[in-house]
Write a protein that binds this DNA or RNA. Structure first.
Lengths: 208, 208, 208, 208
DNA sequence: AATGAATGAGAGTTCATTCAT
DNA sequence: CATGAATGAACTCTCATTCAT
């Protein structure tokens, strides 16, 4: 499944783009609140600002909406993460800056992260694979960053694992906010986690 | 909301216990497969081994089933985790043994962990809080273990954060299995993560 | 497709029988009036005397209703036709009596005949074949009657064709009533057609 | 209802003619396949070669399309039947030739005959009457032919009935093809039926 | 004259829940 | 205590029709 394979009976491509963005925006608001299953297509149409009939001119099934939403969120996260990365800068400081930005991004996009976290599983296999593919891409970005910043100290597999750890510890701030955000400010959380992370790399380095 | 506040029209408490266990066992099988929303009460009744009418003698709403399931899974995880802990043993080795056991437990209970992960949000607030309360309990266990094993090196807040990290890195093995279990055996995953963790503590220790 | 392959979630077989008869009776009334496509499932449920939910306990799709209706009509026509036939009586008089009865039956079941005529095509292939199979059966009955009554005068293929002619000339009284019933009484129609038929057989006989 | 009473917002009459022919041609193709009810107006527009908006410039409702189609089919059948008839030729041979031509025409126009057969009932009364009026016309043609060919042997009413019989036995080749065309070639079917028919007339003739 | 995006009533179907037996 | 037939609100999705461009 690819994004463009969501069929629409509308011919004007730019209108499709525009309306789908309305759909995505409306749906995210609703999904935040009630999740995918408890949101009805009529509510989505209304939140998008048009009728149920019009909604179905731009998607074929309710699941298509979920797909659009997930796809859009991933794209956004990735874009913003990539924007932080300077491939020519291999300093540790640059590394921590990127990680810090990522954590702040997770804070900013908390609700969206939650949606992805909880609803991707509701996609049918084909779409799910397409979306999960995007996660591989994001991990690859983190891996590359690690490789650049710590060229000699970590094996490939350790880099991969570390990328995963960073990835979900960032998301954790969103999906465990009921616990973490009661005890830490975002700054504290970021500071502590970056410390743990750096020590872990340094420590590992020395200990092997 | 507390567990016993799920009303039942049945008087015999031991029968309630028995029937609810049947319900839980049946429901978990189904939820693994199709998730909470896509599972019908009829299916649950059938999987539990009795009629839909009987099901409703032991619960009031479909959500009650989810609550029973989540509650049961948490209880099980906690019990098995606690069984590993010797409060009088403050050795680092004991610490890593417990962590290792926890990771292996997450592997064993992958499907259940997934259910919790993805479905707890569908609980209504009251029940959700009750369930999340159990997570606080589990974190407290890990915190205590950390405090015992590393009595002087970590502040309270760092212990809390570390407990969280351990907790979700364990779960990650389950909920990101599509990614991790392609690249690591359970043993490798456990070894690497424990290394990272220990270095992180040691490194931190030294660096502060 | 066979009749019993229409799944029902109801266990009591005699209740299924009873409810399905209610459905058939209600649906026929409606189909007479508005045809299959213009009749809604809600109307069918109401005409059957229960709720839409209950309707769907006894069928799986709207098409099932059409199938039940067609099946029931064929069965009825056939039963009543068979009841007229005495296999041991090979007299020409018996032959004409049966034909006459058949014509009167078509008159009595006009509406039902119309439904079959116009709606069978809406069945999906599997069911359609099952229903059309019943028409073969009825033709076989007429063929056998012809063979018994005119043992030597007609070849197998001519008997087959004649059976078809009788069959649809009977039905014609129903489906062309807007034309025929303005010009003929049932008795006249029957008399004339039987005359044509007998002369045709006799004439054929002599001319070959 | 008359054909020209289908309102159109278009002024140019020859354009209306042209566009409606496109509609008819497209619609017949679709109706053959899926019947009137299962065909959408969008599909009709597409098959006709223009947009849904344009379609509705030439018709007012979907039913109008059905009317146009039925009207067109009747017209065609009638034209071709009339083309065979020489009013000055009263020979029996001419009679059988026309009947034979009619049967071959029914073979050629099988699909169209089916459409009429199954869909006319979906017309609303006004249009239905208009279309059925055309059947009276065709029957009148056959009646006249019978009267010309057998001037003294059959009463008016018998001629009328015979006309009906010929009419539907011709159509039967189309609407019962699933049965007849497995057992007979068109030639055989025609030969047998003409034999039956001629004997029937002759026989009747002699016997009265 | 032609287009096609927008509409919304209404269709078929599902399923959590109840309650008489 | 157990059953399962009955219910109907609520869901997703379709499609004939309109009308601004």
């Amino acid at each position: 499944m690819q994004k463009d394979s969501i069929l629409s009976s509308i011919k004007d491509q730019s209108l499709i783009e525009k309306r789908r963005n309305q759909i995505i925006r409306g749906a995210i608001t609703l999904f935040k609140d009630k999740g995918f299953h408890r949101t009805t297509t009529r509510e989505i149409a209304k939140a998008a600002g048009f009728s149920i009939g019009t909604l179905y001119e731009y998607i074929r099934t309710k699941e298509d909406v979920l797909f659009l939403v997930c796809d859009s969120i991933y794209l956004q996260v990735r874009k913003r993460l990539e924007a932080q990365i300077d491939l020519n800068n291999s300093s540790v400081e640059h590394f921590t800056n990127v990680i810090r930005s990522y954590f702040y991004l997770m804070d900013e996009m908390q609700e969206e992260v939650l949606i992805m976290y909880q609803e991707v599983k509701s996609l049918k296999n084909e779409s799910k694979e397409y979306v999960l593919k995007k996660e591989w891409d994001m991990l690859a970005i983190l891996e590359r960053l690690i490789a650049t910043s710590f060229p000699d100290s970590l094996s490939l597999r350790k880099r991969k694992l570390l990328a995963n750890n960073i990835f979900i510890i960032g998301q954790m701030w969103a999906f465990r906010r009921w616990m973490l955000q009661k005890q830490f400010t975002l700054e504290e959380y970021t500071d502590y986690q970056i410390h743990f992370l750096m020590n872990s790399i340094k420590g590992y380095n020395e200990s092997v």
